[in-house]
């Protein structure tokens, strides 16, 4: 009778090996179970090996603590539970932040957001990542929240993941069998889930040497205090003329069970003039990979539409930034 969509509550995740949890984003009131923080043990590892052995022993009942802006909230609300919380902020590798214009960026997994935008060189080199770092919560949150935590929380709506994917970032993972590397684009597997196996954790993110320009844009109904209805990250490189696009990568948030790469949209730009018409065409291509659901953050058709709008806008910004660097 009412002309509105009834919003469902969580992502419909295709049947998987493991039972899908109805887990979309952490602060889901409809799945909240408790109001008081339950007891758990706390350990602060100081080396990678120590963390690996604590996590291996703890298994499913152990969780990593970086800034805690997701995990503490989730433990308190009963959305996740743990017997052991392993603080990784005392491990030097996790707090490393090394930038070299020729080699790229090594971003320790527990480095808080503010350190990215406080560093002018990093801010200029990876503007998409800094766009993300600046909008994850407010100042207090950014003083704690890490990009690694944002990635490992593996929300489909996480604000840093499209930027990491667009910038071509790689995860450096430590575990009982040593270290391995996984592209960020392949890290998330389902809402709240990722490819980390028992005893594994994220040590750092590695970004290639900066080229071109990048940007991240999300749509939220208000101007703060919201989770992305849609997020789009883009990276572009211009050809020597500065008028045509040589290469591009686009990634989307909040339109599928995991952040997704809009590969066709990126490819479609190669060799095209850096114009509104090309951006618009890329937006149309990006809409094709969006598989959004209708939920409390917005109806599916609206989200698909926003993918087009935001892709177009974010490309314009990325190109502008690429040009200003030349």
């Amino acid at each position: 009778m009412r002309g509105t969509t009834k919003y469902g509550s969580c992502w419909k995740v295709a049947a998987q090996n493991r039972p899908p949890r109805s887990f979309y984003y952490s602060l889901s009131a409809s799945t909240r179970k408790a109001t008081a923080l339950q007891d758990f043990s706390y350990a602060a590892a100081t080396t990678i090996d120590e963390a690996v052995s604590l996590l291996s022993a703890g298994g499913d009942r152990a969780r990593v603590l970086a800034g805690g802006t997701d995990i503490i909230v989730q433990l308190r609300e009963g959305l996740r539970s743990a017997d052991l919380v392993v603080d990784v902020k005392k491990i030097p590798e996790l707090m490393a932040l090394d930038f070299d214009p020729a080699r790229g960026l090594l971003l320790g997994a527990a480095v808080p957001c503010y350190r990215l935008y406080d560093d002018e060189r990093i801010a200029a080199a990876y503007p998409a990542l800094v766009d993300s770092a600046r909008i994850i919560g407010g100042w207090q949150i950014q003083g704690r929240a890490s990009i690694g935590g944002n990635l490992c929380n593996s929300s489909p709506a996480a604000d840093s993941i499209p930027s990491l994917i667009a910038l071509g970032a790689t995860c450096r993972i430590a575990g009982p069998a040593g270290t391995r590397e996984v592209p960020v684009a392949e890290f998330c597997t389902a809402p709240g889930r990722n490819c980390l196996a028992r005893g594994e954790f994220l040590v750092s993110l590695v970004l290639p040497a900066p080229r071109g320009g990048s940007a991240y844009l999300r749509f939220i109904p208000r101007n703060e205090m919201d989770i992305a209805v849609v997020g789009v990250g883009a990276w572009v490189e211009l050809d020597p003329s500065g008028q045509k696009i040589a290469d591009a990568r686009i990634a989307l948030a909040a339109v599928a069970p995991t952040p997704v790469v809009a590969a066709e949209a990126g490819k479609s730009l190669v060799g095209q003039p850096a114009s509104e018409a090309s951006f618009k065409a890329a937006g149309e291509a990006a809409k094709k990979v969006a598989r959004p659901i209708t939920d409390r953050r917005g109806p599916a058709d609206y989200r698909t539409h926003l993918v087009g709008v935001l892709t177009q806008r974010v490309l314009a910004t990325a190109v502008e930034r690429a040009k200003s660097k030349k």
Binding site: Y7, G8, S9, L27, S28, A29, S30, R32, M225, D226, I227, D295, R296, R297
Partner: peptide, 9 residues
């Protein structure tokens, strides 16, 4: 059932 019983949503 209400799906947005928090100040986030």
């Amino acid at each position: 059932r209400m799906t947005n019983a928090s100040y986030l949503d």
